[in-house]
């Protein structure tokens, strides 16, 4: 029975109109069948650890709780086990929670270390002077960080900048030597710890100035040491255009 139906169907001539309908459906079908694929972004960066509230001196019998920020292999803040150590536990002791205590006069280097799988451990360190004299144990505050913007594409993008905290305000000051191509559609500026991607980055906003000095007023809650890069990114094309490492 089935064979008979197939044979009768096969024997029946297909009209020209039907051929045309099939062609039209096939052509439109090619559009609809073009599915969204994947573009791979190589976004691996080295893990890093940094002490975020250093002090340079500590009075004997005083304590200071150090904090540290660990960034994983895509530059995102992540929880991990921190190993706090002192180079001279007789001068400066530190416990597993990062609480340091001045014990006697002298100098000690305080380390924080993170063990990585299949890699050498990473660490950050700060020199601390322990003294009998009265000190305020205030945190060493960074007020300025600077860097240079450079293009990583064929579009013009250059200049220098300063990230500045002043009067409780955080500002990104782009200098007079700044120049950027205005031809690029949808150019956006980010703060990030991974200059390869906007994943985990903080969007400052769309770039509307393409030459000369200008300033971005940033959220006062942002720590000046929280990010290490400026990232210029073209949203419509989905590509990085340039970057600027934020130095000390």
């Amino acid at each position: 029975m089935g064979v008979g139906i197939v044979c009768r169907f096969a024997a029946k001539p297909i009209s020209k109109i039907m051929k045309l309908q099939v062609l039209i459906i096939a052509i439109i079908g090619t559009s609809l069948c073009n599915c969204i694929g994947d573009d791979i972004i190589f976004d691996t960066v080295d893990e890093s650890i940094r002490i975020t509230n250093p002090i340079d001196s500590l009075q004997i019998d005083s304590t200071h709780e150090f904090r540290a920020l660990f960034l994983n292999n895509i530059g995102i803040e992540a929880e991990t086990d921190l190993d706090w150590q002192s180079s001279d536990p007789n001068v400066l002791s530190i416990d597993a929670n990062g609480v340091a205590t001045g014990l006697q006069e002298g100098r000690a280097i305080m380390y924080v270390e993170v063990a990585l799988e299949d890699k050498e451990p990473i660490r950050d360190e700060k020199l601390v002077v322990v003294t009998a004299a009265e000190v305020l144990n205030t945190e060493v505050e960074t007020t300025e960080r600077e860097g240079t913007i450079r293009t990583t594409s064929s579009y013009v993008l250059e200049g220098s900048f300063i990230l500045k905290r002043e009067n409780d305000e955080l500002r990104l000051e782009i200098a007079e030597d700044y120049k950027a191509s205005s031809s690029l559609p949808g150019l956006y500026l980010y703060l990030t710890n991974n200059p390869n991607t906007t994943n985990g980055a903080l969007e400052i906003g769309m770039v509307n100035t393409f030459e000369g000095a200008h300033t971005y007023q940033l959220d006062n809650d942002i720590d000046i040491n929280q990010f290490d890069y400026l990232l210029y990114y073209c949203k419509p094309f989905g590509v990085k255009v340039g970057e600027g490492e934020i130095g000390e």
């Binding site: 559009s31 694929g37 994947d38 791979i40 972004i41 691996t44 994943n199 989905g238």
Partner: peptide, 21 residues
Amino acid sequence: FSRTYFNNTVSATTGEILTAG
């Protein structure tokens, strides 16, 4: 009838979709 699209961007490190197509 016209169709336009852009691809997902996917992290080579984690396999996570960073920007959905």
